[in-house]
Amino acid sequence: MSASPASPGARQTVALALFGLALVAAPFVVDRYILSIILLCLIGAYLGQAWNILMGFCGLLSLGHALYLGLGAYGAAALYVKFGIGPWLGVFVAMALAVAASFVIGWLGFRFRIEGVYFSLLTIAFAESARIGFDNWAWLGGAAGFFLPVRAEDFGQYWNLRGGPFFFYYLALALAAGGLFVSARLRASKLGHAWLAIREDAQAARALGVNVTRARFMALFVSAAMTAVGGVYLAFWGNNIFPGQIFDMAHSIDIMLGPIVGGVGTLFGPIVGSFLLVPLGEALIEALRALGLNAPGAKALVYGFLLMGIIAAAPSGVWPWLARRLRLQDREQ
């Protein structure tokens, strides 16, 4: 029936390859400012993938993913600054920290049947208390923040994540591509199907022999570990961490917004969402600046209205709609 010669799957592969090529070539084409925006899109896409595994695949709504981001950032940064252990090793510690924290949340949640809203509120409570805890932890700088040294002689130590804009750009691209790969592989696996079944109906999944608690823990661990890696990236890219920023609920919201706008539970939703929202945010800043509205709170005020508008307008996300339009997908998925 379709006029296109190629199957949706093939068209999807071609579209993805073209998109990937454009991203690889971008540093040689666009200026620094645009490149930094694409970098933010890529990081957003990666973190969105991580959140999407938990919520989109397994149906567990985490409203406190900033927790894992912050633990990852502080874990690797503290090891590097305080003990001289590089992030190539620190990233594993960061993941372990996040997984441990997610285990506590999961243990409380699953062991005591804390489900639905309660589970979500639990995730916020953990993220917020981490923020307060780190605010008061003088050894790591407390509320005044924790800083990574930026020394000229370290430059080029890529294994220590010391590099320039190009290096961090390609690292972000690698993260986003890796995130997509991991998501796709997991979604196609038995574990991924167990997650989908749990998302749809946990009781029915259990009756079909799915170990629901184990599968939920796996989703939590994968999601937390992936998010922690993003935290390591942010720490070494920005060279400073503030508890009030990294653990902030606004950060958790940013992480989940991409996949929600792009399409929760879809493979490409987090990418599409991030590549829509980040430029939109930048355009908003530019527009307000042009209008001379620089008062504190003005940007956030408009952003708040935008959030409400977007969520009212796009219930199932942009990607399913876009994919149908571009014939990149069958009816399914």
Binding site: A188, S189, K190, L196, L208, G209, V210
Partner: peptide, 12 residues
């Protein structure tokens, strides 16, 4: 149905 069959199948 495949999710049911997963229990005794090595892969999807």
């Amino acid at each position: 149905v495949a999710i049911g069959a997963m229990l005794r199948a090595p892969d999807m």
